[in-house]
Amino acid sequence: MDILVCIKQVPDTSKVEVDPVTGVLKRDGVDSKMNPYDLYALETALRIKEQQGGLVKVITMGPPQAKEVIKEAYMMGADEGTLITDRKFAGADVLATSYTISQGVRKMGGFDLILCGKQTTDGDTAQVGPEMGEYLGIPHITNVLKIIDIKEKSMIVEMDMPDTIEVAEIQFPCLITVEKDIFQPRLPSYKRKLTAKDKEIRILTINDLDDKDEMKYGLNGSPTQVERIFPPSVNKDREIWTGTGDKLSLQMASKLRELKFI
């Protein structure tokens, strides 16, 4: 069984700061890492492979340095990796991103199962998976909590719904996005680290894709536009209290009493 996992390189978000004067993000020396939610997708793929055989391939779209996440995936046990990168992909929104990745997927060959993380920590839309499912013309299930059974032509999964947990059977080929905690991701292995260094990473640019129409990629292929960015609004109706702990706790207690919370 061939499984594809979509992984993304994201900034190590805990370090992102905003310049209080200009409102511009400061990302000096911010490290990048694999989107933490994608680790769960990759782990799921590796577990299925251990049980069923086959290959685990990974794909990522991003700038040239996104190669690093593929190496990370190799260290966990992925068999093949592809990076789709091109300057023409600049400014891609969810629709253009999903289209680009699905074009890359078509180049990589047929898959029984495509796995995505639940969401990314930078884009945070949880939309790329379902949009790829549509572009590839395969069914999808999101928020998978558990894999109950893998059969010849289908799999049975448990999914998280607003008020219910549902068990469903889905035919291959299909795409699923997995919840955090479906499996505990393994640590990269040191033995693999050595071989991962030299392992080939396939690079695809727009010229390698079936659809080379530049209007479908990057900003041109993105229906949404960022009109402006601005700092969040300030609550005008506010008070600031300073003083000793004794004074402040008293002030707080009386306000809570006045508001009838105590």
Binding site: V10, P11, T13, V16, E17, V18, G23, L25, T121, D122, D124, P223, T224, Q225, V226, E227, R228, I229, F230, P231, P232
Partner: peptide, 16 residues
């Protein structure tokens, strides 16, 4: 809120 920072993004979809 967007871009993983303390910033809000105003987004439109003017052509579709």
């Amino acid at each position: 809120p967007a871009f993983g920072g303390n910033i809000m993004a105003q987004i439109i979809c003017p052509n579709t």
